[in-house]
Nucleic acid binder design. Structure first.
Lengths: 366, 366
DNA sequence: ACCGGCCAGGCAATCGGTTGCCACCAGTTG
DNA sequence: CAACTGGTGGCAACCGATTGCCTGGCCGGT
């Protein structure tokens, strides 16, 4: 083929090439692009024309080196494949792209160690960091926040700007919904023990339940994924409650499936409510009633604030930014069946006793 | 607070700082890290100690500037939130991280224009590109492949290294499966017209069907997502086939839901088979029988080859690398119901179920 | 005719590493 | 004893863009 088709050696066009072609100094070329008005309009136009012909693109790395601004931000998530992050990533990405920033995605693969190493690799390159679902300690996060602007998602860290969904409001709405449906008790299926969101939701749930005079119980912790929900179902199967509120949607989905394989049907026997409203929530059968967190907005908001900080705004490190949530009612919650109060009724459907010692486990699982 | 807690001004430690502290030249510091053996072992050790104390981290941007290697690769996907990409991203990310590369994720947001602009932004910064599900033309892709190493995923582009799942084999396995279940005809629900994979799958399906003497029909194109499947269900509802093979899982899932709302049950009335095996395939009810593409492996393989190319390997631009697939049997396919062959009975047998299908569901849902 | 000011452009230092080349110092070798 | 060699380390020129500072020319004001 032709000479120029070699991918290997073709060095990129630089301002020096443009400068030579346009018979000006490199600095003038630079200014023609980054300092509108600083160079004569006619000259600037000529430079721009020449640059176009040569196919000049500024090298962001070189620029970053001298300006100490790479126009890249890191987005750290605990697991890229987790659908919970899908909309967050999308929101962040869209906001960043619009501002001319590029996102560097770091996947922690659910490991503290990997999270740190990914972050370490990314940190020197980026202008700031959005930490989604970090496993690191508060103090480690604060340490990083000293070096570069940081916004934390779904978690509150003192002295660091945070963006969180309205956990309390959402949980309350979930409890109210259940209460309206006639339930007078519910079980909270907890997520990871260390999770800030889990703590928030559990406390809010207790408060809301107290106000509405519901009895609450709590099982867990479980890993916040579908298998975790299946395990929760095992624990619950022995003495299923009439209503359960799960830490998040994946847990809820696993729960529904796990209960289903034991002959306990949702919502007929037990109402299940999730949190987050991930995409799969409306795909499963029954559709999952859940508290919809504004995931896209979370990603966008975190990014917007990060960019503002990068541009020099104060960190407004007061209290976390709380984003509104709403309840999405689908098929996994229903009016409480009064007849379930009569004990032996569900022999065929409810009683499929698993091989496991059911009673003792459920009581003493802590 | 204390002096050093200011995030704004603290400049990073450089080799010059280390050099001064260790009383050597900057070049020696550089070599101590990047040229093992080039400097005296004792000196190197001293430098490393000093560097540790000072908290020195090499600045990747500066390194990239002089070596023309950023150790970053771009991964372009048409939509980050599409679950199809989840495992691909994960695979790519894991492979890249292991090799010390960082992934720059570019989201095309399902737009040709955005894809190009994202790519343009990323291209000068990265050492290579993995193009997942690109919307760009073959020639545009080849153009990019001239500038930087490129690996294309899920699509074959002449003169560019590609990684694809075994579309032909997978489709054949799907048809065989359907045939074994007694189906003697099937409908292909097509994806995007421009899609290379769609063309492949449709052609392979025709071949396989011919070999096994099944009649085939094709409807579409549909957008390859859940709503697309719902629309396909509308088209199909009038005269539902006994078996359908969908372009991908999302289409299949939408189809199942769409048929369901019309009282047509899967797999009782029609068997549905998907392609890809995304996470949701086993979450829905019934579980989706599908051809499992090795998504994680695809991402990993593409990345591995890209890295090899970056390290200087030949592009092996012969024919695409084909990755093996397997059939995952779940609940959405079943033995064909003979009674559906009786002609006029259609009216009752197709539309029999009211919205709730208590009895029969439990029978078939296993 | 002189001066101050502004405009447009060039020079050169700088960002933080990398690397080709040279210098110096031992320790060998002829 | 001179020449050679291998091992270390320093010097300085890059990589590509940005930017502070300077200069030369032109303008208007006095």
């Amino acid at each position: 083929m032709s000479e120029e088709s070699r991918p290997a050696d073709a060095r990129a066009v630089t301002i020096y090439d443009v400068a030579r072609a346009a018979a000006v100094a490199p600095s003038t070329v630079s200014r023609a692009f980054s300092r509108p008005g600083r160079v004569n309009a006619a000259t600037a136009e000529r430079i721009r024309t020449v640059a176009d012909e040569l196919g000049y693109r500024a090298n962001p790395l070189a620029r970053a080196l001298s300006t100490a601004r790479s126009r890249m931000i890191a987005l750290v998530v605990s697991d890229v494949a987790n659908p919970f992050y899908s909309e967050i990533i999308r929101g962040a990405q869209a906001t960043a792209a619009q501002a001319g920033y590029t996102i560097l995605l770091a996947d922690a693969q659910e490991s503290d160690r990997l999270e740190r190493s990914a972050l370490e690799r990314a940190l020197p390159v980026v202008d700031g960091v959005v930490l989604g679902g970090s496993r690191m300690s508060d103090s480690a996060i604060r340490m990083i926040a000293k070096q570069k602007p940081v916004v934390v998602l779904n978690r509150a860290v003192v002295d660091v700007p945070c963006v969180v969904p309205d956990n309390a409001g959402g949980t309350r709405r979930a409890v109210e919904h259940l209460s309206r449906l006639g339930h007078d008790s519910l079980t909270y299926v907890a997520g990871p023990e260390a999770s800030w969101a889990d703590g928030m939701r559990w406390r809010s749930l207790q408060d809301a339940a107290a106000d509405l005079q519901l009895k609450v119980r709590r099982i867990g912790p479980f890993s916040p994924d579908v298998p975790g929900g299946v395990r929760a179902a095992e624990e619950l199967a022995a003495a299923p409650p009439t209503a359960v509120s799960a830490y998040n949607d994946q847990l809820a989905i696993g729960l529904i499936r796990g209960l289903g394989t034991r002959g306990i049907r949702v919502p007929d026997h037990v109402s299940v409510i999730g949190f987050d409203n991930i995409g799969a929530a409306e795909l499963i059968t029954p559709g999952l009633t859940t508290v919809a967190a504004p995931l896209h907005l979370e990603g966008a908001t975190a990014t917007k604030h990060l960019l503002a900080m990068i541009e020099g705004a104060q960190s407004r490190t007061g209290s976390p930014m709380v984003l509104p949530v709403r309840l999405v009612e689908r098929g996994s919650t229903a009016q409480r069946r009064r007849k379930r109060t009569s004990p032996a009724s569900g022999t065929t459907s409810v009683s499929p006793s698993p091989r496991k010692a059911s009673r003792s486990t459920s009581a003493g699982s802590r």
